[in-house]
Design a protein around this nucleic acid. Structure first.
Lengths: 95, 95
DNA sequence: CCATTATTTAGATAGATATCTAATTAACTC
DNA sequence: GAGTTAATTAGATATCTATCTAAATAATGG
């Protein structure tokens, strides 16, 4: 999606913690849910938000659903950051 | 504030556009508001969200309120990004 | 095919957010 | 100090979000 969806997805502590865990390696949905004191449906919802934002991918493997981090989307944030820095730098040039 | 407030503040197109404009140089609140088709109070609200997130600062100058970008907070995002990349890199190490 | 395990979907609710209009505060000008 | 300009605050509302419980779907194992 866009930066909107992306930043919104990142604006939640639980979701960032999910990402941090997925950064260490792929995990099944239930394994993720077990790591939090929230209900499974709630975690499922958060995983869906992350998926909509393109931050994670899921793959059905047997009866499990394995989630993995999609690192390419982090480039969008980096791109946005550099965009901002670029504008700031131009301004400094004009002084 | 924290990353939560920060990312939430960035999850709005209007607010990111405000930041983009402030990156070019300081602006008065009304000057910012005039650039959008939203009401002044709405822009005032967005400016407050950005201020709470530490992304902008304001300074009363005469009858105007001048807003400016606070670039230091962008380091928090960079920090978070590097944090994530660090974890990912460790994982690659383990293979 | 029935029971179990894994996960999602549905439906409900409380709290947050974006927006507006109207009213208020603050500063400058005459 | 009365009028004008700049900006915020107050109050209202409609939409979005996070969370829960209960129900539904899907795959596995006997």
């Amino acid at each position: 999606m866009g930066l909107n969806t992306l930043f919104k997805a990142l604006g939640d502590e639980t979701r960032r913690e999910i990402l941090r865990r997925l950064a260490r390696g792929d995990m099944a949905a239930g394994e993720i849910a077990a790591a939090f004191e929230l209900s499974w449906p709630t975690i499922s919802h958060h995983l869906n938000v992350l998926k909509e934002a393109g931050l994670v991918q899921d793959e059905k493997r047997g009866q499990y659903v394995i989630y993995s981090l999609n690192t390419t989307v982090l480039q969008d944030i980096t791109g946005w950051l550099f965009d901002m820095l670029g504008i700031i730098t131009e301004r400094r040039h004009c002084l």
